[in-house]
Design a protein around this nucleic acid. Structure first.
Lengths: 247, 247
DNA sequence: ACCTTGGGTTGACGTGGATCAAACGCAGGG
DNA sequence: CCCTGCGTTTGATCCACGTCAACCCAAGGT
């Protein structure tokens, strides 16, 4: 197996645990890195981990050591408080990072659970900090990723604070659609990996309300739903509904 | 004015625009830095800016260049979307950082508005990245600050998604109380810097609902409210109410 | 084929908070 | 002193969503 920088760019390399031949490198941490920098990142991303549907990647309270890049699969994160209430704080897919919330207290503050069989790359955080002191591009990109998470959360706060049920679901579906599209999948037709209950938890709604909203969208011809299979028939309609003034 | 490292620790220095003699240095970015590192940070925090109540520190859409540390005063941040809806995404006080959301897109994604006459230190972000490549402690601390913001946002999502009106207000007041305490002010008695409407926007409630919840707390002897002056009479009661199971 | 199980749908009804509306009270200005 | 205006309080009514409950449907086991 050749180690020189030039070959790292080739698409036909043997498959191994490395960013340099991961087809997500334009979506994940390596964005914008040169071949030699990519090689350094390869050394850092030492371990891979496979999870089966339902497995925890980490749990709230565990000590934080690594962040995780999703190589394949689908996750949810949730927090739960003493009195039993819980809330899904996000759904993560291929190329996205998990665990950023753990940096602040050196403890994970939420649970990360695989919603389908998945594979992640573990990135020891202290190594990442070390490397990002060397590679400006990596440092800056990492900061952008953290910042993007903050912006995303503000969007969810907006949704939870000001939108009504159907607007929330429309926003949710459009967001999923757009993320599938960015990964080369159909933006119009996809399988939901999560239950109505989990969607409801994320959107601050009860599962019955989510179910009714789905039915309503179907009646209005905005989409076709069968169980977890969704086909968007009228994106513009959904978008309009989402942005629509209340009343 | 002496420039050597030793004097930077002295409390009786002449007042100048520098982290080394800012009494917030245990609350703000400089946490844990050595005197010589502190001096480097001083050079970076070049400009100060004074704002009068109501002034914008920055607006959504402006290009992002600096983050801001609040030296004195009180701010709110809000986002607004095309259809006219808006939401307060946070209230920031002394020692807290503003502008982290702008890193991702190099544009500010929200408005930051002073709720009282305030003063901030502008920290050019590219300089901060440069310096945090030199100073591990600074780098790590900055990452923790960003991560803490994410955790805070998850808390707000939880609040908006699962709590009822009175629980939300109780959580809000306890949070303010704790932050005032951390700054050496009374945790039991303080002035709200924001209107009922702004509280409502932050908590996903209408101002009337906020007002009613205040009245109810007062009736129940949990606190004394007069206009924006709040005195907490029963912290435990508030905490219990907040954590209380619905029903 | 049958049963079981767990998610999903649908209906009837209740309620927390929104909405609409009026009045209050404090601050600034003439 | 009164006027004016804005933020706040309080009351009456409404409605979106939650709650409770029945039922459906697909998948897996026997």
């Amino acid at each position: 197996m050749s180690n020189d920088a030039a070959t790292a760019r080739l698409a036909f390399e043997v498959v191994k645990t490395a960013c340099s031949n991961c087809n997500l490198r334009e979506l994940c941490l390596p964005i914008g890195l040169e071949a030699d920098e990519l090689k350094k990142l390869d050394e850092l991303v030492s371990t891979r981990r496979r999870l089966k549907r339902g497995d925890h990647l980490y749990r709230a309270g565990q000590t934080f050591e690594s962040i995780y890049a999703i190589r394949s699969g689908f996750f949810k994160t949730d927090v739960l408080i003493e009195d039993g209430r819980d809330q899904v704080t996000g759904f993560q897919m291929t190329g996205e990072l998990l665990g950023l919330d753990g940096i602040s207290s050196e403890l994970h503050t939420c649970n990360a659970i695989a919603l389908e069989d998945s594979e992640v790359c573990a990135i020891p955080f202290s190594h990442l900090e070390g490397l990002s002191r060397e590679i400006h591009t990596l440092q800056h990109h990492f900061h952008k990723v953290m910042s993007r998470e903050i912006v995303r959360d503000h969007g969810v706060m907006m949704l939870l604070g000001t939108m009504r049920a159907e607007e929330r679901l429309a926003a949710f579906l459009l967001n999923l659609s757009q993320r599938f599209k960015a990964r080369g999948y159909s933006p119009a037709e996809f399988n939901l990996r999560m239950s109505r209950d989990e969607i409801g938890s994320y959107l601050g709604l009860k599962l019955e309300t989510v179910s009714r909203a789905f039915s309503r969208f179907q009646e209005e011809g905005l989409l076709a739903v069968h169980q977890r299979k969704v086909r968007i028939l009228n994106t513009a309609g959904l978008r309009k509904l989402m942005t629509h003034q209340r009343g």
